[in-house]
Computed example of a mutant assay.
Amino acid sequence: MSNRAEHGDDQSDPGLSAIMSERRGLINLAYRLLGSLADAEDAVQETYARWYSLSAREQQAIESPGAWLMTVAGRICLNLLGSARVRRETYVGDWIPEPLPEPAEWINGRSGAEGSDPADRVTLDESVTMAFLVVLDSMTPAERVAFVLHDVFRYPFGEVAEIVGRTPAACRQLASSARRRIRTAQAAVGPVAEQAGIVRQFKTAWQARDIDTLISLLDPGATATADGGGLAVTHLHPIVGGEQIARAYAEIARVAGDRTTFLERTVNGLPGLAAQQDGKLVTVFAFEIAGGRIGHIWAVRNPEKLRSWQFS
Rank of each mutant, 00 (worst) to 15 (best):
A232E: 14
L26R: 06
E264P: 14
G93P: 12
D210G: 03
L217A: 00
L54D: 02
A170C: 03
D9S: 12
D278C: 00
L231M: 14
I252S: 12
A275P: 15
N302C: 14
A253K: 08
N302D: 15
F287I: 02
R88V: 11
I211E: 09
R265P: 14
V282R: 09
H150V: 02
D9C: 09
G35S: 11
A5W: 07
R121A: 15
L124C: 06
V44C: 08
R179D: 07
I211L: 06
A113G: 05
S17C: 09
G109I: 10
A224I: 03
I27Y: 13
V86A: 04
R75C: 01
I76E: 03
H237K: 15
L69A: 04
C77F: 06
Q59A: 05
I96V: 15
S116R: 13
F287G: 01
Y52T: 09
V189F: 05
V284G: 11
S83K: 07
R23C: 14
Q11E: 03
E304K: 10
A253N: 09
A170I: 06
V284T: 13
G229F: 08
L37P: 13
G269Y: 01
I19L: 08
R85K: 09
R307C: 06
R144V: 00
M1Q: 01
R301A: 12
G229H: 11
I297D: 06
G82Y: 02
D210Q: 07
L306T: 14
F287P: 08
E264V: 08
L54V: 04
V44A: 08
V192A: 10
L81I: 04
Q310H: 11
P141L: 02
E264T: 11
C77W: 04
L124M: 12
G241V: 07
V134H: 08
I107H: 10
R183G: 02
R154M: 07
A226Y: 15
I289M: 03
R180S: 07
D94L: 14
G112Q: 07
W106L: 10
V160W: 00
Q45L: 12
G190C: 03
L54N: 03
D258S: 14
V284Q: 13
H150C: 00
S12L: 12
T283D: 12
